[in-house]
Structures are given as C-alpha cells and as structure tokens.
Design a protein around this nucleic acid. Structure first.
Lengths: 197, 197
DNA sequence: TCGATAAGTATACAAGTGAAGACTTATGAT
DNA sequence: ATCATAAGTCTTCACTTGTATACTTATCGA
C-alpha cells in the first residue's frame, strides 16, 4: 500500500521524480491543491518533503506539472471515440467509464474540481478545457449552438465526476454501468442533435 | 466594502450571529471550507475571530450550520416548479437560472463543491442530496430507473454550477439563457422519459 | 580504490491556522 | 443610579504549512 517496499531504496532520480509526481496526482485528486500537503505527497512517494521542492521548485510548480501531466490524454475524446460510427453513444459509454468511482485512473477533471478554490487551478482548468476538449467537441457536434452544446456536454462530465467520485452519491456510485449508459445514450443524442424541437 | 459602517456598532446578539452566518456563507462559497479562515469570516461580519467560536462553537459547527441554512430552500425543486404542468421544461429553466454566474443568490451546491475536499462537507452533501432533492425528484420522475435518472439530473445541476460559476467557462458563463434553455429542455425531457429507446 | 557529485535527510524557521482563557465594556432590569 | 450579565476583544498557545540551509551518504567514473 505504501509503495513497493523496494529493498534498500535505490537512488534513482528519474524514478523518484516519477514517484513524487504520481503521489502528487493522487493526493491532489483526493484532497485538492490546498488540502494536499507537501509532506503527505512526499510520504506517498516514500521520500522526504524537501525532495519535492528539490525536484519541482515549489508546491505550485508541482501542481502545474501534475495538471499538465494529467491532462495530456483526453480520455473521453480519445481517437477511438472520435472515430466511432455512433459518436453520441461512444461518448456516453466513455462518460460512464471515465467517471466510475473508486481508485480508477481518473481524469484531470477531479484534480481541478477539488482544487478550484484556488484561482491558479481554475485558470489552468479554463485553459485546458477551452483549448482542448471544448474545441474538439464543438467541431464534432457542429450545427447551431454547437459551442453551447459542447460546453453542456463537458458540464455533464464534470457533474458526473462530482457526484460519482467526489460525493459518492450512492444512486450513481453504485449504479450498474449498463443502466447509466441506457439512460445517457438518448440524452447525449438529444444534446448533440442540432434540430430545434 | 467592509460592511456597513454602522454608527457605533450596537450590541445585538441575533444580528451579529446572522452577520457571521452570512459572511461565512459567502466565504465558504468563494473559497471552500479549508480556504476560508475564521478571521476572514469574522472580518466580513465586522467582528473578531473569537466571536465566531463563541457563537458557533467551532469552525466545523459553523460550516454545518451554513450548509443546513443554505440548503433549506431547494430552489430547483421549489413548489412552483413541482406544480408546473410541464415539469421538465420548468426544471430546465430553473436549472439555467440557479446556475447563472456572478453574484447570484447561489445554491448550497457551490459551498459543497468548493469544500468537497474535506470529508465532512462530502458527508453533509450526501445527506442533503439523498434525503432531500434525490427523493423528491425521483418521485416526480417515476418509472424504471427513476433513481438513477434523478441522480443524473442532479449531476447536471452540479456540472453546470461547476462550469458556469466555479470555472467560469466562457461558453456557458457568457451564453444567453434562452439558448441554454432551448438546448436543455429537450435534453431534460429525454432524461425524464422512462420509455426505453 | 577513492573521492566528486548527485541523492536524500534532518533541523529549523517564519507565517498562518483554529482555538482558549482572561479581560473589558455596553446593556437593561431593578 | 447601579450592578449583574451578556457581548465583544486581546493576547496567547499549540499546531501545521511551505520552504531554506546545512548535513549525510550512496553511486560511479577515474
């Protein structure tokens, strides 16, 4: 649980750096920027607090790196999903998967949501969403109000992550994925459908 | 800016208590549980930090009271909306209104979302959602998977609040309410519709 | 084999946190 | 008018936070 109890802990800069980054990612996703302490992050990587600053300069720089790292892979808008014949259905399925509760390989959203109190995190989130997902999704949807539709879809991602992973609402955290998909597929289809009702 | 410079600040327990509660609500909604300091809250009410503890026992108890206070009125599931002939449309409109960005009279969700790092806040949120909104909404929807549908609707509320008020995503924060309603009404209708596709 | 160098640790500090006890002063019933 | 009581403040404490300096020790090329 506390990192592989490697024999006598070999010295290895790259590995240690990666371990700190991974621990920080976990800690930030769990407790947010303010909530996660440098000592806690360090302990999660099996090192001393000072090493964190030696490698990353400061907690804020570490956070920025975690954000950049976490958001490199879009997950929901992966190539496979973008190429899917039935895009809304693929989006809905990815949505259910990505927001699955527990120790899942979580999206960068969680880090942002938990840290959004601090203006720094909010700014990073805005940039990432605006330049990345928002634009791609908007292009996939097309038609009138595609900008708003894309943003609303991302809102749904955020909302599900909040309810399933942060608050762990039983009705969603414990729901059968198939049920959620069954509900969400027509919903997403409606959301992406540009025809006025 | 620093509170109405009332003459010589009359002594009034009830008023002071209310002022602290209001200031705390603002501070928690802005910075979250950990982010808001007792001194900051006290300053916002024009009193000393100690008075906060004298009136509420501790920061945690104050937070609990703010939560209870903020969530007394359901806003989205108000009586007017529950009685509306076209419930999905009413829900969608209320959704757009409640999540409007800026200094709006915000729902308790914001407080929770910003504070969700701390387990205490998450627990309060779970209880409030589970015992309040979730049940009411579930009953309004009815049919199969109404439980999941209700939770998904609340997820949408949370997501919109996150994107419009916390992250202030331009595509949503700056969107025309009418446009959002136009998109959301059919979406909510689909979400509440129990017919299998 | 042997140090130069990088990897990692220990100790400490300044700032900020929530909270406690002792203090002062306005208020209002007598 | 007076004084018990509640309203409010001052000072302080114990603790945690992020960070800096100085120290120890493993590693690896010569």
């Amino acid at each position: 649980m506390t990192e592989t109890a490697a024999p006598p802990r070999r010295r290895n800069a790259a590995a240690t750096r990666a371990a700190i980054l991974a621990s920080a990612r976990r800690a930030f996703a769990r407790s947010g920027y303010d909530g996660a302490g440098v000592r806690e992050i360090a302990a999660g990587a099996g090192v001393t607090a000072m090493l964190v600053n030696r490698y990353f300069g400061s907690k804020e720089k570490l956070f920025a790196e975690v954000c950049a790292d976490t958001m490199r892979d879009p997950v929901i808008l992966s190539a496979a999903n973008l190429a899917a014949p039935d895009f809304p259905a693929a989006f809905a399925k990815a949505l259910v998967q990505v927001t699955a509760p527990g120790e899942t390989p979580l999206d960068g959203f969680l880090v942002l949501l938990h840290s959004a109190s601090s203006e720094r995190a909010a700014q990073i989130g805005r940039d990432w969403i605006g330049q990345g997902h928002q634009t791609t999704l908007e292009r996939m949807i097309g038609g009138p109000l595609s900008r708003e539709r894309a943003a609303l879809a991302l809102s749904l991602v955020a909302g599900l992550q909040v309810m399933r992973q942060m608050m762990e609402i039983e009705a969603l955290a414990g729901a059968r994925p198939a049920d959620l998909e069954a509900i969400l597929i027509p919903v997403i289809r409606t959301l992406f459908d540009a025809r006025a009702d």
